[in-house]
Amino acid sequence: MVLIKGLRAAGAAAGLAGDELDESVARTLAFLRRRITGDYTVDEFGYDGDFTEHVALPLLRPLYRDWFRVEVRGAENIPLHGGALIVANHSGTIALDSLMTQVAVHTETPGNRALRMLGADLVFASPVMGPIARKTGSTLATSADAQRLFSEGQLVGVWPEGFKGVGKLYKDRYRLQRFGRGGFVAAALRAEVPIIPCSIVGAEEIAPMLANAAPLARLLGLPYFPLTPTFPWLGPLGMVPLPSKWLIEFGAPIRTDDRGEGAADDPAVVFELSDRVRETIQHTLYNLLRDRRSVFF
């Protein structure tokens, strides 16, 4: 009874009422029962769908819905079934854009598709962040892992700018960095899955990086050490993201099953397709910036 009263109080504080509150309490109790009895599965990558759907995503939704007020366009371009690769721009000093894309995919697709994200080595080296990343669907950004996910019909997300995108200065906002060697394209070509360009506006403004304290970053073993208007001057409070207005657009799928045998091993094909995806994202970013009324509204 005490637990139920506590859950109802927490739900009410979050703005739930009536049937919505009752359903939330029932779902939470069912989740706790499954965790206690072990009635849940974890796949070979460490992905825990039950935890992701009932803990991680609900914690992210207030940020998605109320703080960033994310507006999604082109969700109909995300396949309802089968493997596909979502390729997005990466930015923001604090890499929240991948998480907001994950919430967008789950929220906006019929059947609430899960996005399996490819991440950098540094993410999984963290004793705290690494296990949570794996539990919520991330895995190492390697061709082998991508191929296995595609073979299972999974929707995979990649942010090929990597730390070059997240750690760029505010003066370079919305200018895409190099997309690496096109490994993501080669993986999609081998699996013959469509590539969906994804353009994200809003992340650049959550923690404008005015400078990079490179010596300190090297000392700490980090790819960059940001100096923003609030960090490190306000301490931990300086890490709270600013409430910028976000737009996420999923573009029309680009086919990879019409390139012929051996296309994945042809550098010219890989470069051409990688460049096409990059240009599509860059052009869409300019259009979204034009449509957005202001940074915060």
Score class of each variant (00 low, 15 high):
residue 8 R to H: 08
residue 16 L to K: 06
residue 16 L to F: 11
residue 18 G to K: 05
residue 24 S to A: 15
residue 28 T to G: 04
residue 29 L to V: 10
residue 33 R to L: 09
residue 35 R to C: 01
residue 39 D to K: 00
residue 41 T to V: 11
residue 41 T to G: 02
residue 43 D to C: 00
residue 45 F to D: 09
residue 48 D to T: 00
residue 49 G to H: 00
residue 52 T to M: 09
residue 59 L to V: 09
residue 59 L to G: 01
residue 60 L to Y: 05
residue 61 R to D: 11
residue 64 Y to Q: 07
residue 65 R to E: 13
residue 65 R to T: 12
residue 68 F to D: 05
residue 69 R to K: 15
residue 74 G to I: 04
residue 74 G to W: 03
residue 75 A to I: 00
residue 75 A to N: 02
residue 78 I to L: 13
residue 79 P to V: 07
residue 80 L to N: 11
residue 81 H to W: 08
residue 83 G to S: 01
residue 86 I to K: 10
residue 93 T to V: 11
residue 95 A to M: 10
residue 96 L to I: 14
residue 101 T to M: 13
residue 102 Q to A: 14
residue 104 A to V: 00
residue 104 A to T: 01
residue 104 A to C: 01
residue 105 V to K: 05
residue 117 M to R: 02
residue 120 A to K: 14
residue 128 V to G: 08
residue 128 V to F: 13
residue 130 G to K: 06
residue 132 I to L: 15
residue 135 K to Q: 13
residue 136 T to Y: 03
residue 140 L to T: 09
residue 146 A to Y: 05
residue 146 A to G: 02
residue 150 F to A: 08
residue 152 E to A: 13
residue 152 E to T: 04
residue 153 G to R: 00
residue 155 L to T: 02
residue 157 G to F: 03
residue 159 W to C: 10
residue 166 V to T: 12
residue 169 L to S: 06
residue 171 K to R: 14
residue 172 D to N: 12
residue 177 Q to V: 09
residue 180 G to R: 12
residue 181 R to H: 12
residue 182 G to W: 01
residue 183 G to N: 02
residue 184 F to D: 01
residue 186 A to E: 01
residue 187 A to S: 15
residue 190 R to W: 02
residue 194 P to V: 05
residue 200 I to L: 10
residue 201 V to F: 08
residue 202 G to K: 03
residue 202 G to F: 05
residue 207 A to I: 04
residue 210 L to Y: 07
residue 210 L to Q: 07
residue 213 A to L: 14
residue 216 L to Y: 12
residue 216 L to D: 05
residue 216 L to E: 06
residue 217 A to C: 00
residue 223 P to M: 03
residue 223 P to G: 02
residue 224 Y to P: 01
residue 224 Y to D: 01
residue 226 P to H: 06
residue 227 L to C: 08
residue 233 W to P: 06
residue 233 W to Q: 15
residue 233 W to H: 14
residue 236 P to N: 13
residue 244 S to R: 05
residue 245 K to D: 08
residue 248 I to N: 04
residue 252 A to K: 13
residue 257 D to A: 08
residue 261 E to C: 07
residue 261 E to K: 15
residue 263 A to W: 05
residue 264 A to M: 01
residue 265 D to P: 02
residue 266 D to L: 04
residue 267 P to M: 10
residue 267 P to Q: 06
residue 272 E to R: 13
residue 282 Q to E: 10
residue 282 Q to C: 05
residue 283 H to C: 09
residue 284 T to V: 02
residue 285 L to H: 00
residue 289 L to M: 08
residue 290 R to V: 08
residue 290 R to K: 15
residue 292 R to G: 06
residue 296 F to L: 07
residue 297 F to D: 15
